[in-house]
């Protein structure tokens, strides 16, 4: 049975307990930051911050809505990082996506490929690092640290199928109670994410791509576009220029 987490953005109160629990369990150091006029902190995910709550202010019907979303690796079924990794360090382990720290060379391709900006290299660079779904807890039957810590129960850990059913129920409740755009995110995106969201608004309002796509979806066409260009260049400048020269040479020879 595939495991997953369901993050209910309606229940999230942005206490950032998940951030602290993640740092504590995974032994990740703090980051030095400055006050940017927001409670959101640190400013971005990094190689030492694998999850954080994003704060967004959205205007809706003349009122300001304050939206919170916990951001981390989505553990995609069609994972771009796995597709582009040249060494095989980024890999699927069951339903989870991991980066084998012994295999990773720190090329940064997964950083460029991730549609959710969830993988990072540090400064100085090392290996690419991201949320591991607390595999070391989950394999021993515990829930991930963030889910364990969440005071309002906005992060639920469990069987993916059951969580989807729960999420759909929550979306129905929200739609009936003043959130017409509420939706479940992650059920089908990229073959199914293992971080599911109950969103109170459109995906874009939470900084999520409406239709995330795999980085390598067009890779064959992109190779071909390069080859076709090489063909055109072979014909246009070289064949054209050289052929004309040859014709000139042969006509001169005939005189």
């Amino acid at each position: 049975m595939a495991k997953a987490m369901l993050i209910d953005t309606y229940k999230c109160m942005a206490c950032r307990g998940c951030q602290v629990a993640c740092k504590a369990w995974n032994d990740l150091p703090a980051e030095t930051t400055v006050n940017r006029g927001t409670y959101e902190n640190p400013p971005a995910l990094s190689e030492k911050t694998w999850t954080r709550v994003e704060f967004r202010e959205v205007e809706a019907g003349g009122e300001v809505a304050w939206l919170f979303r916990k951001h981390q690796c989505m553990h995609c079924t069609q994972a771009s990082c796995v597709s582009v990794c040249p060494t095989g360090a980024a890999m699927h382990h069951g339903e989870f996506v991991l980066i084998d720290q012994a295999q990773c060379i720190g090329c940064g391709y997964c950083v460029q490929a991730c549609p959710f900006d969830a993988v990072h290299l540090g400064e100085p660079k090392g290996t690419a690092r991201k949320c591991t779904f607390c595999l070391d807890r989950v394999t021993d039957g515990y829930e991930p640290a963030c889910a364990k810590a969440c005071p309002p129960g906005a992060i639920q850990f469990g069987d993916r199928g059951e969580l989807i059913a729960t999420g759909k129920g929550r979306v129905g409740e929200l739609r009936a109670n003043g959130h017409p755009n509420a939706r479940l995110y992650g059920e089908t995106e990229l073959g199914g994410l293992h971080q599911l969201y109950v969103l109170t608004d459109k995906a874009a309002a939470f900084g999520l791509p409406e239709a995330p796509r795999v980085a390598t979806r067009n890779v064959l066409g992109q190779w071909l576009s390069g080859f076709v260009t090489a063909g055109v260049l072979a014909a246009l400048p070289f064949w054209l220029v050289i052929k004309r020269r040859q014709e000139m040479a042969s006509s001169r020879g005939g005189e």
């Binding site: 771009s80 597709s83 582009v84 391709y109 460029q112 490929a113 991730c114 549609p115 796509r213 980085a215 390598t216 067009n218 890779v219 992109q222 190779w223 390069g226």
Partner: peptide, 8 residues
Amino acid sequence: GVVLSASS
């Protein structure tokens, strides 16, 4: 070129 375009 492809190394760049196969990304997000």
